[in-house]
C-alpha cells in the first residue's frame, strides 16, 4: 500500500483482528493500517462491525484473535503506552454534565497522565482547536448538542494523542454543526492519524482519504479517495451527431469507449494521459456537435451499493 508517509511506521497496525459472536456476527480477520495524515473511514451498514472494531482498538472489548499495534505498542502487551497514544470519541460522547468544559477537559488530561503543570495549556489548546474557548466556563449540561460533541472531540485530543478514533462523530447534529465537525477533522488530519466510523456516504466522501467498506464483519472493499489523479481518467462525453463508437477509440490517449445511450459515451483514458483537448479538437474537426465533456467519478454511493448489494445477491 503506497503512502506518502510510508517511511514512517503506521500509527495503527491491525492484523487478523477477530471477535466472534453467535450467528456469524462480529468481525472476522481484519487487516488494515493507518498512517499519520490519513483519515481512514470505516463505512458499512448498521451491524457491519464498525463499532465492534473501534471498541477493540480502544480496549473497550478484548479481541478473540489477532493483534493491534498503536504507535508501535502492542495493545495486549503494553496497554498503557498504547492507550496514551490514543484519543477516543465514543457515541454518545463520555461527558460529565455537572462539570464545566474546563474542569472536564482538565480531568481528562490528568487521567491520561498529563502533569498538573501542563494541564492548563493542554486544555487551552484543545479548546482552541475545537472552538470551545468561548464556553469553557459553562456547565456541559447547559450546552447544545453540537458543543457537547465538540467537547467529546476535545476530550479525545487533550492529551495530544497520535491516533484519534471517532465513532459516528456527526451523529444527530444539524447540517451546519456536522459541516463544522468535518472541517475540524480535516484540520486535525495534519498532526494525527484519524480513524472514524460512519454510515453516512456523503460524510465519508467529504473527509476520507481512504475508505474501508465493512459488511458482516469483513472488509469487502478498500478505496483511496485522496489521489484521484493516480487512477486513469474517466470522461463522460455527450455528442449531438455522434460517430461510430470505434471511431472515438482512435482519438490519441483514449484507451476504451463504452456507449451509455444514443450520443452518450464513457471514455477511459490511457494511464497518465488527459485526452480532453484531443477529443474537443476531433469533435470540432468532424462536426460531432459536442454538447458536454466532463470527468466522471464513480460516486462512493455507487461503489457502496455495488459492493454491498453485490454481496447480498451473491
Amino acid at each position: 500500500m503506497s503512502n506518502r508517509n510510508s517511511r514512517e511506521p503506521p500509527l495503527i497496525r491491525v492484523r487478523g483482528l477477530s471477535r466472534i459472536y453467535p450467528e456469524q456476527r462480529g468481525v472476522h480477520s481484519l487487516h488494515f493500517t493507518l498512517h499519520r495524515g490519513e483519515v481512514l473511514v470505516l463505512l458499512g451498514p448498521n451491524g457491519a462491525g464498525k463499532t465492534t472494531t473501534l471498541s477493540m482498538l480502544c480496549t473497550m472489548l478484548a479481541p478473540h484473535g489477532g493483534s493491534i499495534q498503536i504507535a508501535g505498542f502492542d495493545l495486549a502487551r503494553s496497554p498503557r503506552q498504547a492507550k496514551r497514544a490514543l484519543g477516543y470519541l465514543p457515541d454518545p460522547p463520555p461527558l460529565y454534565p455537572e462539570m464545566t468544559i474546563k474542569q472536564y477537559l482538565g480531568f481528562c488530561a490528568r487521567l491520561h497522565g498529563i502533569s498538573r503543570r501542563e494541564t492548563p495549556a493542554a486544555v487551552a489548546t484543545a479548546c482552541r482547536l475545537t472552538g470551545l474557548t468561548a464556553v469553557e466556563n459553562r456547565l456541559i449540561e447547559h450546552l447544545s448538542r453540537g458543543y457537547r460533541q465538540r467537547a467529546g472531540i476535545a476530550q479525545a485530543l487533550v492529551h495530544q494523542p497520535e491516533v484519534v478514533i471517532l465513532d459516528e462523530p456527526t451523529a444527530g447534529l444539524d447540517p451546519l454543526e456536522a459541516h463544522r465537525i468535518r472541517a475540524l477533522i480535516g484540520e486535525l488530519r495534519r498532526d494525527h492519524g484519524i480513524l472514524l466510523s460512519t454510515h453516512l456516504l456523503a460524510e465519508a466522501a467529504a473527509i476520507a482519504t481512504r475508505v474501508l467498506i465493512l459488511d458482516h464483519g469483513h472488509i469487502v472493499h478498500e478505496t483511496r479517495l485522496d489521489h484521484p489523479g493516480a487512477a486513469p481518467l474517466r470522461l463522460r462525453l455527450n455528442l449531438g451527431a455522434p460517430p461510430d463508437e470505434s471511431r472515438l477509440g482512435t482519438i490519441p490517449g483514449v484507451a476504451a469507449v463504452e456507449t451509455l445511450d444514443a450520443g452518450n459515451f464513457l471514455l477511459l483514458a490511457e494511464p497518465g494521459h488527459d485526452p480532453r483537448e484531443a477529443i474537443v479538437r476531433a469533435a470540432l474537426d468532424y462536426h460531432w456537435k459536442i454538447l458536454a465533456l466532463a470527468p466522471h467519478h464513480p460516486s462512493l454511493e455507487n461503489l457502496f451499493l455495488r459492493v454491498i448489494a453485490g454481496r447480498e445477491t451473491a
Binding site: T59, P79, K83, R84, Y88, P90, P92, P94, L95, Y96
Partner: peptide, 13 residues
C-alpha cells in the same frame, strides 16, 4: 448508563 464510563475504560489506568 450515561456513557461516561468509556472515558475511564479507555484511559491508561
Amino acid at each position: 448508563a450515561r456513557g461516561s464510563f468509556a472515558l475511564l475504560r479507555t484511559a491508561p489506568i
